[in-house]
Design a protein around this nucleic acid. Structure first.
Length: 1204
RNA sequence: GCAGGGGUUCCCGAGCGGUCAAAGGGGCAGGACUUAAGAUCCUGUGGCUUAGUGCCUUCGAGAGUUCGAAUCUCUCCCCCUGCACCA
C-alpha cells in the first residue's frame, strides 16, 4: 500500500479544490471548531500536538458531512520568549527563526490531512495582527482599564523578564523548573482584569459544556469570598495613651489654626491629652531664638514625647531636638522646608533671617526614636523634594501624599492621621470571632512591614526575614508557621483592646490587607501559632448542645435557669484511667460534673465536687483544659430547664487516698475508673465528649458553630447570626463593612523583552505616559536591535526616540512589550476576518462565525489563557464589537500523549514520536486511527510501537477488501449491522468517544469482510470511516466508482427500522450449532457428516415471553419485566427464585422484540441452509410444545443434536 | 489541607442498576497455512463442571440500599491532576 502517494494525492486535491475554505453563508448553519493554536517552536510538531489537531479534525469532518458550514482555522502564537532565547542561542533573529518554524509547522500540519482553511492563518508576530493588540490596549486605556504602577514583580533571571502570577509555579519559573523566581521592584503596566472579576467568577456556572475540572480551577483561581473588612488602627509611635503630644505650628499660624484642631481631637478621641500646643511667639515675624526659648521653658521633653510639626514648625523642631538631653519617642514632620526656598521663587527675607538653615541631622537622629516625614505632592509653598531630602538625611520614614488642601492645610488631613495611627483594613470571613482576637499577623513579605517594627524588635525581625530568605521555596512551602513580634500593637476597634502585631510567614502579602486578625481559639492556624509563641487564647464561641430527645428534652413550658458548672477529668494517680459516673436516675454517662456555688471559684467547685463524688481527696493539681461548653436540658428532679455553662478541668490525684462517698452521692450514680481508650465509648453526654476529644488531641481550635461568649453585647447569640450582626455594628461605627474579596490580581503585562507586542505608549517629560494615537498603529518592532544584556529594544535609539503625541516635544517609546497571553486572548475572533486592515474584524463576520462552538486544547491553559480570553471577550463585548460574552460554548481537553511505557515524551529522553517518521512507516491514517483508538480522547495514553501494528492490520485489510470486491445485494443482517453501527458511531463522535467509534467500525468491517454487500453499504461504511482515515476513505471512495469527494459527502443516517437484533441471535445459534457439530464430529471420530438432526424447542411460545415482551416495550428491560411478572411483595419473597428464569428469557430478547414479525419457519430455514453448506444434509425436528422439546433434551435457544 | 478525576480480569482500556465472567486492543496459549520463521486467519484466555448446562469466585477494602450491585449510598485505603497557609 502506497500511503504516501495516496495521502499526497488527496491533500493536493483538497487544496486545489478549496474543499475546506469557507465563507459566510446565511443559508447554512455555521460550526466553529478550533484547536488552540500552537507556539511554533523550532523543534517542530510532535505526535502529541498531532493528537490535539486530529481530535478536532474528526469532529470537523463529521460536521462538514452533516452539512454545517465549518470554520476550522489554524494559526501560530508566534511571539514569545522561547523564540527570542532560541534565536539568541542560534545567532539568528527571532523573526527569521519564527518564520522558519511556522513554515515547518505548516508543512507538518498539512501532512496530517486536516480540514484547515489555510486562507485564514493568523500569525501573532505579524504587525498586521499585533496592531490590533495595540488597538485593544488603547481602547482599554481609554476605559481606564490600563494603569502603570511600581510593584514588586516576579522576575525570572533566566528569562530576564517579569512573570505573571500565573506563570510562577511553586516559586519557580513556569519555563525553568530549576530557577527560583526573584522579587524585583519595577514600574509595570497592568490590565484591570479585576474589574471583571465578579463576572468572570459568576459566569463560570453558565459554562455548562466546559469540563468541570476547568471550571473548578477557574473558580478557585478567581477565588471570590464574602467577608467583612474591619479597620484596625496601629499607632505609629506606640500606644497613644502613654504619650505626650507636642505640636509646633507653622509660620503665621497659632494653636487654634485648623491643622491643630482636628489633630488634637483625633488624639483626644484615642484617650490622650495633648501635652503642649503653644502659640509660638511672633508667629508672623518669628525668631528662632525666641521660639526655641519659649518651647524649652514651657515644656519638659520626656522619653514618651511625640513632637508633631507643620511646615516651619519642623524647622524649629530640628533646631530644638539636638539640644535635648533626653531621647524623645517620636517626631512627625508635616511638609517641613529644608532651605529657605519657595515654590513661587519669591524671596522671604523674614524667614531667611529666621535661622541659618543648617541642621545637625546626626544629633536629631540620635535624639528621636522614630521619625516620619510627610510631603505633599502638590505643595504650593515648600518646593517638591525638600521633605524627601530631610527624610533621607534622617533615615526617616518618608510619605508622599496629596493633601485635601495643599500643604496639608485643611481641617482634616487623612494622610497625616494615617501616619499617626495607621489604619489597616483587615479582611475576615469570621467577624463573629472579633472579640477573640488576641494578636495580628502581618505578612513577612509585606512592603509596609518595616514601618511597624519598633527599634527594640528590629534585629529580631531582620533575623527572621533573613532566615526566610535563606530557605529555598520548596522548604518554605513545608515550613512550619513561624513569626516574630514587630513591637507594634493594633487596637481592636470593637473593644479597644491592644493586641500585638506579629510578622508571619504564613500570611499572603497581596491578599486582603496582607495582615490578618488572629483568633487562636477558633482558627487552627492561629491556634498553632499562639501555642508556639505562648500568646493568649480567648474563647468567644462556646459549643452549644440542646437536648431534644428523651426525657431530658427541653420543655417549652418550663423556665430556663442558668448555672455556672464544671466538669472534672479525674485522672488515676498511677494508671491511665479516668473517673467516670454512670448515673442511676438518668441515662447519663459523664465525668465528674457539678455546679459552681455562690462565692466559689470554679477551681474550688471542682475540688469540692471531686472529693464529694469520688471520695478521692489527695489532689495534686487542678488545671483548666479545653473550652467552655454550653448545654441545655430538662432537669427532671428540679422541674426546670437547665442551661449549664461548663468549664472543664483536669484533676490529677497524688495518691489513692480514698473515703467512700456519702450515700447521697452513691445513690445518684456509680463511679467507675475507665481506661483512656474506652472513655470515648463510655461517655454519652455531648459536651463531655467534645471536651474529651479536645483533651486527647492535646487541644485544638474550636471551629464549629456555637454561642458567643466573652463578646459583650453579643453574648448568647448564635455565631452564624453574629456574623451579620457584628458587621452591621461595625458599619454603624464606620469601622467596618461587608466586602467581597478576590484572589485574582490585576494582570501585569509588561515584559522587558524584544519578541512581543510593543506597548503603544510614549513617555514625555512633560505629559507623562501618553498613548500613541490610533492612526499611528501598528508600532512595529524594529528589526535592528542588539541582543544581550537587558531589553534589546533599548538598543535602537532611532526607534525609541520619538515625539510626544500630546505636546510634540521629545518623547521616548515604551520599551516594555506585552505578555504573549495578550496575543492569544482574542485570536479566535480574528479568524472570522483574518485579513482585515481597517478593523480588528468585521462585526458581521464575527457575528456569523463566533463564538467558538467547540474549543479543543490542553488542560494546562485552564487558568491562564482561558481566563484572559474570557476577560478580552467581555471587554470587546462592552465595546460593542461582539454580541456574546464568553469565547467558547464547549470546551474539550485532550489527554496527554506519553511515550512508550507511560513516560513523558521529551527530547532528552529521546522518546519523542514525530508524525513524519510514523507516517513514513505506517501512513498518517494508520497513526490517526491508532491515536484515537488507544483511549478516550480526554484520557492520557501511551504511544506503543506494537499497538500501531494492530491499526495497520485493519487498514491494510480494509484497503485490500475494496481492491477487488464485487457488490451484490445486502442481506438483512448486513443492513441491521450497518445501521446499528452508523447510529452508534454518530453518537460516539458527538460525545468524543472516538475510541468506541473505532471499535464499532472495526467490528462492522470484520463482519462485512465475509459477506457480499451492496455498493450503498460500502459507501456508507467508507463514510463513517472517513473522519478517522480520510485519505484511505477518499481513495477507496474513488476506487468503487464515486466522484470525489467523500470528505464533503453527506453523512449517512441510520435507518432504525432495519436494525434487527434477532438476526444476531440467529447468528449466535448458528455459531454454537456449528461448534457443537464439529465437536461431536471430533469426539465421535467421524470423517464426514452425512446427516444432522436438530431438535428445536418453540421458545417463543411461552406465555411469559409475551408478557415480558409487552412490558419491555421494545427494549430489554429487566426491571420492567420483573414488575410485569410480579408485585413488589412477591418480588421480595420470590424475586430471587425467578431471576434465573427471567435471565434466560432476557438473553433471547432479540427474539422477543419482534415476536409477531419473527418468522419461525424462515429462521429455522436460515439455520438449515447455513449449516447445510458446511455439513450436508440437515434435518430439523420441531417440537410442538416445551414438554416434547424437553423430552428430546432441547431447550429454548439450545437445540439438541443428533449427528450421523 | 482544599478542589477535580480515578482504582475493572496478565497489561492498556470500555462498561456506570438487571441480556455482565464484564466491549475492544495488546500480550500469552493452542490450531490452520508454511520446510521453517514472519505475516495472515481461527479458537481459547478466573476456577470447577456438562453432551446441552450449571455452579463458585472476581471490577481497591469494608459496610449498606435492592428481589438483583462493577454500576447507587456511606466509611476507609491508594493513585493522578490542579491550587496551595486566601484569613
Amino acid at each position: 500500500m502506497e500511503f504516501k502517494k495516496i495521502e499526497q494525492k488527496w491533500q493536493t486535491s483538497w487544496e486545489k479544490e478549496k474543499l475546506f475554505e469557507v465563507n459566510e453563508d446565511s443559508k447554512k448553519k455555521k460550526f466553529y471548531l478550533l484547536e488552540m493554536f500552537p507556539y511554533p517552536s523550532g523543534e517542530g510538531l510532535h505526535m502529541g500536538h498531532a493528537l490535539n489537531f486530529v481530535i478536532g479534525d474528526v469532529l470537523a469532518r463529521k460536521k462538514i458531512m452533516d452539512g454545517f458550514n465549518v470554520l476550522h482555522p489554524m494559526g501560530y502564537d508566534a511571539l514569545g520568549l522561547p523564540a527570542e532565547n532560541a534565536a539568541i542561542k542560534a545567532g539568528t533573529h527571532p523573526q527569521d527563526y519564527t518564520n522558519k518554524a511556522i513554515k515547518h509547522y505548516i508543512e507538518q500540519q498539512k501532512a496530517l490531512g486536516i480540514t484547515y482553511d489555510w486562507t485564514r492563518v493568523v500569525n501573532t508576530a505579524d504587525p498586521k495582527y499585533y496592531k490590533w493588540d495595540q488597538w485593544i490596549f488603547l481602547k482599554m486605556f481609554e476605559k481606564n482599564l490600563v494603569y502603570q504602577k511600581e510593584s514588586s514583580v516576579n522576575w525570572c533571571p533566566k528569562c530576564n523578564t517579569v512573570l505573571a502570577n500565573e506563570q510562577v509555579q511553586n516559586g519557580k519559573c513556569w519555563r525553568h523548573e530549576d530557577t527560583n523566581v526573584e522579587i524585583k521592584k519595577l514600574k509595570q503596566w497592568f490590565l484591570k482584569i479585576t474589574d471583571y472579576a465578579d463576572e468572570l467568577y459568576e459566569g463560570i456556572d453558565k459554562l455548562e459544556d466546559w469540563p468541570s475540572k476547568t471550571r473548578a480551577m477557574q473558580k478557585n483561581w478567581i477565588g471570590k469570598s464574602h467577608g467583612t473588612e474591619i479597620e484596625f488602627e496601629i499607632p505609629a509611635f506606640g500606644e497613644i495613651k502613654d504619650k505626650e503630644f507636642v505640636f509646633l505650628h507653622a509660620f503665621g499660624d497659632n494653636s487654634k489654626s485648623a491643622f491643630w484642631v482636628w489633630l488634637k481631637k483625633e488624639i483626644e478621641q484615642r484617650g490622650c491629652k495633648v501635652a503642649f500646643a503653644p502659640n509660638l511667639p511672633n508667629a508672623d515675624n518669628p525668631s528662632l531664638e525666641e521660639q526655641e526659648k519659649h518651647v524649652l521653658n514651657n515644656y519638659d521633653f520626656k522619653e514618651n514625647s511625640v513632637l508633631v510639626t507643620h511646615s516651619l514648625g519642623g524647622t524649629l523642631a530640628m533646631k530644638i531636638i539636638p539640644k535635648l538631653k533626653t531621647k524623645i519617642n517620636g517626631l512627625l514632620m508635616v511638609a517641613p522646608p529644608l532651605k529657605c526656598e519657595y515654590k513661587d521663587n519669591k524671596k522671604r527675607p523674614i524667614l531667611e533671617k529666621y535661622c541659618d538653615w543648617k541642621f545637625d541631622f546626626k544629633k536629631i537622629k540620635n535624639n528621636v526614636k522614630k521619625i516620619i516625614v510627610i510631603e505633599d505632592e502638590k505643595d504650593h509653598i515648600v518646593p517638591f523634594g525638600h521633605p524627601k531630602e530631610i527624610a533621607k538625611e534622617l533615615d526617616a520614614k518618608y510619605v508622599l501624599g496629596i493633601g485635601n488642601q495643599t500643604h496639608y492645610n485643611s481641617d482634616k488631613e487623612q494622610v497625616v492621621l494615617n501616619e499617626l495611627v495607621e489604619v489597616w483594613p483587615i479582611f475576615t470571613t469570621r467577624p463573629d470571632t472579633l472579640f477573640g482576637v488576641t494578636f495580628m499577623v502581618v505578612s513577612a513579605q509585606h512592603t509596609k512591614l518595616m514601618d511597624l517594627v519598633t527599634d527594640e524588635q528590629k534585629s529580631d525581625v531582620e533575623k527572621f526575614l533573613k532566615k526566610l530568605n535563606s530557605v529555598s521555596e520548596k522548604e518554605l512551602d513545608q515550613m512550619e508557621k513561624e513569626g516574630v513580634f514587630t513591637g507594634s500593637y493594633a487596637t481592636n476597634p470593637v473593644n479597644g483592646e491592644k493586641v500585638p502585631v506579629w510578622a508571619g510567614n504564613f500570611v499572603v502579602a497581596d491578599y486582603g490587607a496582607g495582615m490578618v486578625m488572629a483568633v487562636p481559639a477558633h482558627d487552627q492556624r492561629d491556634y498553632e501559632f499562639a501555642k508556639k509563641y505562648d500568646i493568649e487564647i480567648k474563647q468567644v464561641i462556646a459549643p452549644y448542645h440542646v437536648e431534644t430527645n428523651g426525657e431530658d428534652a427541653v420543655r417549652k413550658d418550663k423556665k430556663v435557669i442558668k448555672r455556672d458548672s464544671v466538669f472534672a477529668l479525674v485522672k488515676h494517680h498511677k494508671e491511665d484511667k479516668y473517673f467516670c459516673l454512670d448515673w442511676k436516675k438518668f441515662k447519663w454517662k459523664s465525668f465528674v460534673i457539678g455546679g459552681v456555688d455562690d462565692g466559689e471559684t470554679p477551681e474550688e467547685a471542682v475540688r469540692r465536687e471531686v472529693i464529694e463524688e469520688t471520695g478521692y481527696s489527695d489532689i495534686k493539681s487542678i488545671k483548666p483544659i479545653a473550652f467552655e461548653t454550653h448545654a441545655e436540658f430538662y432537669a427532671k428532679h428540679k422541674e426546670i430547664n437547665r442551661y449549664g455553662k461548663y468549664k472543664a478541668f483536669l484533676v490529677e490525684l497524688a495518691s489513692d487516698k480514698h473515703e467512700k462517698p456519702s450515700d447521697e452521692h452513691t445513690k445518684n450514680h456509680e463511679g467507675i475508673w475507665v481506661e483512656k481508650n474506652k472513655v470515648s465509648g463510655f461517655i454519652n453526654l455531648e459536651n463531655n465528649r467534645l471536651v474529651w476529644n479536645d483533651y486527647i488531641k492535646g487541644g485544638a481550635a474550636y471551629t464549629e458553630n456555637g454561642k458567643l461568649i466573652n463578646s459583650s453585647e453579643f453574648d448568647g447569640i448564635n455565631n452564624r447570626e453574629a456574623i451579620d450582626k457584628i458587621t452591621l455594628h461595625l458599619k454603624k461605627q464606620k469601622i467596618g463593612k461587608k466586602v467581597i474579596n478576590f484572589k485574582l490580581r490585576d494582570w501585569g503585562i509588561s515584559r522587558q523583552r524584544y519578541w512581543g507586542t510593543p506597548i503603544p505608549i510614549i513617555h514625555c517629560e512633560k505629559c507623562g505616559a501618553v498613548p500613541v494615537s490610533e492612526k499611528d498603529l501598528p508600532i512595529a518592532l524594529p528589526k535592528d536591535v542588539e541582543f544581550g544584556e537587558g531589553n534589546p529594544l533599548e538598543t535602537n535609539e532611532k526607534w525609541t526616540k520619538t515625539k510626544c503625541p500630546k505636546c510634540g516635544g521629545s518623547g521616548k517609546r515604551e520599551t516594555d512589550t506585552m505578555d504573549t497571553f495578550v496575543n492569544s486572548s482574542w485570536y479566535f475572533l480574528r479568524y472570522a476576518d483574518p485579513n482585515n486592515d481597517k478593523e480588528i474584524f468585521d462585526k458581521k463576520k464575527a457575528k456569523y462565525w463566533c463564538p467558538i462552538d467547540q474549543y479543543v486544547g490542553g488542560a494546562e491553559h485552564a487558568c491562564m489563557h482561558l481566563i484572559y480570553s474570557r476577560f478580552y471577550t467581555k471587554f470587546l463585548a462592552d465595546l460593542g464589537l461582539i454580541n456574546f460574552r464568553e469565547p467558547a460554548k464547549k470546551l474539550f481537553h485532550q489527554g496527554m500523549l506519553q511515550g512508550e511505557g507511560g513516560v513523558k515524551m521529551s527530547k532528552s529522553k529521546g522518546n519523542v514520536v514525530l508524525p513524519e517518521v510514523v507516517s513514513e512507516k505506517y501512513g498518517i491514517d494508520t497513526s490517526r486511527l491508532f491515536l484515537l483508538s488507544l483511549a478516550a480522547p480526554d484520557k492520557p495514553r501511551d504511544w506503543s510501537e506494537k499497538g500501531i501494528q494492530g491499526s495497520l492490520r485493519i487498514i491494510q485489510k480494509i484497503f485490500d477488501y475494496f481492491q477487488d470486491t464485487k457488490f451484490g445485494k445486502d442481506n438483512e443482517k448486513t443492513l441491521s449491522k450497518l445501521n446499528k453501527t452508523i447510529k452508534e458511531v454518530t453518537l460516539d463522535i458527538e460525545d468524543f468517544a472516538y475510541n468506541l467509534a473505532v471499535i464499532k467500525i472495526r467490528q462492522l468491517f470484520e463482519y462485512i469482510e465475509g459477506e457480499t454487500i451492496s455498493k450503498d453499504t460500502a459507501e456508507k461504511f467508507l463514510k463513517i470511516l472517513s473522519p478517522f482515515c480520510p485519505h484511505i476513505a477518499e481513495e477507496l471512495w474513488e476506487k468503487i466508482g464515486n466522484k470525489p469527494f467523500i470528505s464533503n459527502a453527506k453523512w449517512p443516517k441510520a435507518n432504525e427500522k432495519l436494525i434487527d437484533e434477532k438476526l444476531e441471535k440467529i447468528e449466535g445459534v448458528l455459531d454454537t450449532l456449528r461448534g457443537d457439530i464439529l465437536k461431536i464430529k471430533e469426539l465421535a471420530k467421524l470423517d464426514s457428516v452425512s446427516k444432522v438432526k436438530i431438535f428445536v424447542a418453540p421458545a417463543w411460545k411461552w406465555d411469559a415471553l409475551a408478557i415480558v415482551k409487552k412490558a419491555c416495550d421494545g427494549k430489554p428491560d429487566f426491571g420492567a419485566a420483573m414488575k410485569a411478572l410480579m408485585s413488589k411483595d412477591e418480588m421480595k419473597k420470590q424475586g430471587k427464585a425467578v431471576q434465573p428464569f427471567l435471565k434466560a428469557v432476557m438473553s433471547r430478547f432479540g427474539e422477543l422484540s419482534d415476536l409477531e414479525k419473527f418468522d419461525e419457519v424462515k429462521a429455522i430455514e436460515e439455520v438449515k441452509v447455513a449449516l447445510e453448506k458446511e455439513f450436508g444434509s440437515i434435518e430439523i425436528i420441531k417440537a410442538e410444545n416445551s414438554k416434547e422439546a424437553k423430552a428430546n433434551n432441547a431447550f429454548p435457544g439450545k437445540p439438541a443434536l443428533l449427528v450421523e
